[in-house]
Design a protein around this nucleic acid. Structure first.
Length: 421
RNA sequence: GUGGAGGUGGCCCAGCCUGGUAAGGCGCUAGACUGCUAAUCUAGUGUCCGCAAGGACCCGGGGGUUCGAAUCCCCCCCUCCACGCCA
């Protein structure tokens, strides 16, 4: 959520921003109209309440006819206040709905563009491997090795679910442990929050209402299945006022994530786009000063893992049109998958400035006597598991159908070097 | 799930029975005083509207009663304790 004052001061700047983001401008006009009406109603309501407060106090000191007359008069005032309050409630809802649908303002360094074709490749790292045989896709490899059981996963939960098995399940577990351990080295505290979150939480990080159709909703209890650990982890500090000395707070969490992927075609196969996947997430709460420098650091925390696994990848700076709702700036990391012969997004690292903090009311005191201010939040995947698994299987596959385990992961697999022999 | 106790500015806590401007303490900040510090005294220390003067709002959330609700009534949420059930 943006600061209302920022919108009021320069609405045209916001209008331009919505255009840059390829979003409908009408939301701004809806906000401005509702805001103006809301302010007028606030003033009138305040005026009438002042009258009522003063007169009510007099009533307590009166007697007889004079008292009854004033009570009768105040009855009318109260009725009018009631009307105004009803109108205010409706106006406020419209105003709130509008502002919750205005996205964050992009950082000046974000390229202006329409869609993913306008994203900028910052750089590529690593060499694409040259094969002396035709590399297989991850599903072919996994099938041959019996480490992913697609059919039985589907049997249990339906299309878009799968079951890891044997060394596949062990590799998954190794990746989770390795990622978490490395983030711990990088200064993050490991947390394991609930996988089910409430409405306040999904509003707090901005998934609701914009992405509500992409989340699994438990209707009976009005709860959601975690869409990304960003939600429960960021909301751990919801409504809190932190001391400056507590910042920065860096959390890392392993958590299953659930996506309905509504409306997306299944142009992918295997485990590239699934309804349930594991992910290790990094979340940082920082002072506003220098938060975009922290984004570079956060991104490097994710990149280090990919480098250590020796997987080729590239860094994309997302353009205004492709960046998600709450971001001020966002990098995607994409690993190269030779079997698929395509780049796969395995991490998204974003700075949200105070956009989420305002929604989730996460503040800090810059100094003991000063007013509390909103913190800045950042997060990044470090990393999404299935696509990392795809990249490992496809990059580390051998001619004989086996897969070499990346060196950094071997300690987590009791020294095992190869899957499938 | 049942029974009990609770939820009041950053923190603690009074007020609720018996409706009438939310008391006090701690912490923090500024000023005064003081060789320094401490103590003490004074003021400030939530949100919103307003250029300001000023005003409104805020007692877990939502309704209701009333001229007027922290206080009375109804519904819901959360915390703690006990019991029950359970991996």
């Amino acid at each position: 959520m943006l600061d209302v004052n920022v919108i009021r001061e320069d609405p045209e700047r916001i209008r331009q921003m919505l255009r840059d983001r390829n979003k409908d401008e009408s939301v701004l006009d809806r906000f401005l109209a509702a805001d103006e009406k809301w302010r007028a109603l606030t003033e009138e309501g305040n005026r009438l309440r002042k009258v009522r407060n003063e007169e009510s106090l007099k009533i307590s000191k009166m007697k007889g006819d004079e008292k009854s007359a004033l009570i009768a008069e105040m009855k009318k005032v109260s009725a009018r206040i009631g009307e105004i309050e009803q109108e205010m409630a409706a106006t406020e809802e419209a105003r709130q709905d509008a502002i919750l649908n205005i996205p964050n303002i992009p950082h000046p360094s974000v390229p202006i563009g329409k869609d993913e074709n306008d994203n900028v490749v910052v750089y590529e790292w690593g060499e694409k491997r040259v094969f002396d045989f035709k590399p297989l896709t991850h599903s072919e490899i996994a099938d041959n090795l019996g480490i992913i059981d697609f059919d039985r996963g589907t049997k249990v939960a339906g299309s878009g679910f799968y079951c890891l098995k044997g060394d596949g399940a062990r590799l998954e577990r190794a990746l989770v442990s390795y990622f978490l351990d490395r983030h711990r080295d990088q200064g993050y505290t490991e947390v394991f929050p609930p996988v089910v979150v409430n409405r306040a939480a999904v509003i707090g990080t901005g998934q609701y209402p914009n992405l509500k159709d992409d989340m699994y909703h438990l209707e009976r209890d009005d709860m959601w299945l975690n869409p990304t650990a960003e939600v429960p982890v960021t909301n751990l500090l919801q409504g809190e006022i932190l001391e400056k000395s507590q910042l920065p707070i860096n959390y890392t969490a392993y958590l299953p994530s659930f996506r309905r992927e509504a409306g997306k075609h299944s142009d992918t196969h295997g485990i590239i786009r699934v309804h349930e996947f594991n992910k290790v997430e990094m979340v940082r709460f920082v002072e506003p000063e220098g938060s975009f420098d922290v984004l570079e650091r956060l991104r490097m925390d994710a990149e280090e893992l990919i480098r250590e696994m020796k997987l080729p990848y590239r860094v994309l700076l997302l353009c205004t049109g492709d960046m998600s709702f709450s971001c001020a700036k966002c990098y995607d990391l994409e690993m190269y998958a030779p079997g698929e012969d395509r780049w796969l997004e395995c991490s998204s690292c974003s700075c949200f400035t105070d956009f989420q903090a305002r929604r989730a009311r996460i503040k800090y005191r810059p100094a003991p006597h000063l007013k509390s201010e909103f913190v800045h939040t950042l997060n990044g995947s470090g990393l999404a598991l299935p696509r990392t698994m795809v990249a490992i299987l496809e990059n580390y596959q051998n001619k004989d159908g086996t897969v070499t385990i990346p060196e950094v992961l071997r300690p987590y697999m009791r020294g095992q070097e190869v899957i499938g022999n």
